[in-house]
Design a protein around this nucleic acid. Structure first.
Lengths: 231, 231
DNA sequence: TCGACGATTTAGGTATACCTAATAAGTAGG
DNA sequence: CCTACTTATTAGGTATACCTAAATCGTCGA
């Protein structure tokens, strides 16, 4: 029962820095400022500088860092960050689908466990879930090879919990419904926020900058394809 | 995504000290020496002294410690230790039964995760498993209330993996078999080591101080009740 | 192009959980 | 009952990941 000292470059803390840089860097992976990281991680800017210098100076650097010019992930850093994100999203999916967690509790648990599960655990829950590609929030799960799947669209019914999306397409099985939906702002290109699922398996959404909630039936939701936006 | 600093008195390290004291103290909960702890935990004796002083001096002390006289758990310490053991054994059972882990990999994963799961996770996996009372190694799982179940006997078939037991009783459905078993040392009071399960659902055991393995069929194993010994 | 001001970095400090080496306290033999 | 030896404790030091306060860098407007 020896005390397990996690080795540098693979700690909980480092993981969180990498995830933050990944998510703040956006799809373009542009440089991220110390201040943005400080805010996101809830630590003092000075601590950020310190950690970045260490990460950049490691034998296998996890970030590319230049004084006063922000950071971006190195390829090793990106690999690790995506692995942690994969863990997070697989765990969320697992907690929700296998352990019947209430959706609101899924995030915090995953946030803690993502740092400590083994490759085997990852592999086993992925298998149990049939190697899913999106989590209950509608986010894509990075592959085992450490790649984010191409940003394909997903059906609105696959999203369980709140999040912001862009509407990709609305199937036109019924021109009347289509027109009605469009009248409420539901059309390709519009911004859509998922509030929550309803008992009848439909979901409550809001569109554009409007705060008004629309209650979509299961069939209507099934006709709408969306793309995740932001983290 | 703020960095989570675990507060003193609830850390991974503290958990491991408490578990070690619980297990080294035995059922009599006698005082445990620094040296024994140092060996078990793989840290220097000086580090043990340090930690014990801190644990004993906390606002809610987790151990009772006197210089040069060893430690024992306080009631708060015992509660926490048993909770960690409960986590460990539930996780092992879960990995084995739900995630189909190979039995040899169950321990290490549980050893890491036991410190980080929430009450909810504990509750959900316990429910999923039907609130089990013994783990795949034949050890009792402490209750949610933090009590070790009375040391009842279990059927040999419930044990999946190696471990040492005392034979509690051998059912005498068939006097011939009973006699044959007894001839091999399998009788109430004898010490029995479970080597491993066999493909035919029986198991390989050794009895007493003998190293020779006996291959028991499923029916024979089903007639033997055992009690766990040691940790 | 010169400040001023905000962003960033350096310097110096804290707590945790380890370590080694030196000291002190118990224990057992003569 | 006192020394020798083993066990435990104190003293002083390391690395990690934070902190605050005090420089310094960079850019943007006059």
């Amino acid at each position: 029962m020896p005390v397990r000292r996690r080795t540098n470059g693979n700690s909980e803390s480092v993981d969180n820095y990498l995830k933050a840089i990944l998510s703040l860097g956006g799809p373009g992976e542009h440089r991220v400022t110390s201040t943005a990281l400080a805010e996101r991680l809830g630590v003092a800017p000075a601590s950020i500088t310190n950690m970045l210098q260490k990460l950049a100076g490691a034998m296998e650097p996890l970030v590319e860092y230049e004084r006063h010019r922000g950071v971006k992930l190195s390829s090793a850093g990106k690999r690790r960050a995506l692995e942690v994100v994969r863990h997070h999203r697989l765990i969320e999916t697992f907690l929700y689908k296998v352990l019947d967690y209430p959706i609101e509790e899924v995030h915090d648990e995953a946030e803690r466990l993502e740092h400590f599960i083994s490759e085997r655990f990852e592999e086993r829950i992925a298998a149990k879930l049939g190697h899913p590609t999106i989590d209950p929030h509608g986010h894509f799960i990075p592959t085992m090879e450490g790649e984010m799947p191409a940003q394909a669209s997903i059906v609105l019914t696959e999203v369980v919990d709140g999040g912001t999306f862009l509407i990709d397409s609305v199937d036109d099985r019924d021109a009347e419904t289509l027109k009605a939906l469009e009248a409420q702002g539901i059309k390709a290109g519009a911004r859509l926020k998922v509030k929550r699922r309803t008992a009848a398996e439909g979901c409550l959404v809001s569109v554009g900058r409007s705060a008004k909630a629309l209650d979509l039936s299961r069939e209507m939701a099934g006709d709408i394809r969306i793309v995740p936006v932001g983290s």
